[in-house]
Amino acid sequence: MRMTTTENLRIKSLQIRMDLLKLIHGAKMGHTGGSLSNTDVLTALYFHVMRHDPLNPKWPDRDRFIASKGHSVESLWCILADLGYFPKEELSTFCQFGTRLIGHPNNKVPGIEMNTGALGHGLSVSVGMALAARKDSRPSRVFCLMGDGEQAEGSVWEAAMAGAHYKLDNLVGIIDRNRLQISGSTEDVMGIDPLDQKWEAFGWNVVSIDGHDYDQLVHAFESAPQVTGKPTLVIANTIKGKGVSFAENVPEWHHHVPNDAELQRAIDELTAAITNQDEGSVTTHAIHS
């Protein structure tokens, strides 16, 4: 399960992007831009960093992942299916009547820790999970992915205070900093910069990285806590729609469903990117955590 080279992780992320585009196209609904922007974060976590077991989803010592920005669930469904948490064939039921694979994380599905949807809740629950793990003397870490638009929710900052107060260094918050939300630029809707200084003021150790660079992703996640006695906040600077040239940084792709021609064009681009890597155009090296 643990991929050991950057090339393996990049190729897997390209495959996941193709899967999630087909998922959204088939369902005729979904959140495309944010799922494409968070794919590399999730790929690094699930295929290299986190301790988890698809054959034993309730393993007590597992690491926990909470998708607080639950609307961008498509990448997560595709990764869980790829890992064997449920059959890949079930992906075709996404957002269909009676499915388990709804448009937000659903804890009836193995591998999902909590239902999320209303923004601002995930970090609060993650604080509780991290505190419970510490009280039970378990090695589990808790990773919580938030959106940057989500930072306008007051409950995020209440949880931030609690995480620092309890010195939860087994807690890693992640912000998918793609700078776009459904209404446009985050800074136009509700300015949140300087994010790093705000989180530092709340008592967190803050790391800002390229959210599409696997060396930076793995180092940031595996080295937490860099400062003992503090939770870590990783600001993953990403591109909304990443991997599909005509969707990147386009606000309308927040929940745009690709038509047949757009899907084929996107698949062609992603397939070409995989082919280029297989032919050695991208340097391959082992990941040094």
Rank of each mutant, 00 (worst) to 15 (best):
G122E: 00
G70D: 02
L83F: 09
R100N: 14
K69P: 00
I79L: 08
K88P: 05
L101W: 00
F86M: 11
L55R: 12
G120N: 03
A67D: 08
R100H: 12
G149H: 05
E153K: 09
S124T: 10
E153Y: 05
G120F: 01
T93N: 12
M50Y: 06
G120I: 02
P54T: 09
A81N: 07
E89K: 09
D136M: 15
D148S: 09
K88R: 15
L123A: 03
D148W: 02
G84P: 05
G120W: 00
D136G: 10
E89C: 08
G147T: 06
P87D: 11
S126A: 08
T116D: 05
I79G: 00
A133Y: 01
P60N: 10
L119N: 00
F97W: 15
M114E: 13
G103T: 03
I112M: 04
T99N: 06
V109C: 08
R134V: 12
V127T: 05
L131D: 07
V125M: 15
C95E: 09
P57R: 05
G120V: 01
E74G: 13
F143A: 07
I79T: 03
Y85R: 08
F65G: 03
W77A: 03
S155R: 07
R141I: 05
H52E: 13
L131Q: 15
K69N: 13
N106K: 10
P139H: 10
G149I: 07
I66T: 03
T93L: 07
K88N: 14
P87F: 13
E153W: 05
F65S: 05
G149Q: 06
H121K: 13
S68D: 06
Q96E: 15
G147M: 05
D63E: 08
A118H: 15
H71L: 06
P57M: 11
L131S: 14
K108N: 14
M50T: 06
G147E: 03
L80M: 08
D148F: 02
G122Q: 02
E113H: 12
H52L: 09
S92V: 13
D148Y: 04
I66H: 00
N115T: 14
N56K: 12
P87Q: 13
C78Y: 00
G84V: 07
D53M: 09
S137K: 14
D53T: 07
G122Y: 01
I102M: 09
D82E: 12
P87I: 14
H104G: 05
N106A: 09
L76D: 01
P57A: 11
D148Q: 07
S126K: 04
G84T: 11
E113G: 12
P57F: 03
V73P: 00
R100K: 15
T93D: 10
F94R: 01
G149D: 04
D53N: 15
R141S: 04
P87H: 14
T116I: 10
G154C: 07
E74H: 14
R62L: 05
N106L: 06
M146C: 08
L131K: 11
K108M: 10
A152I: 13
D82V: 03
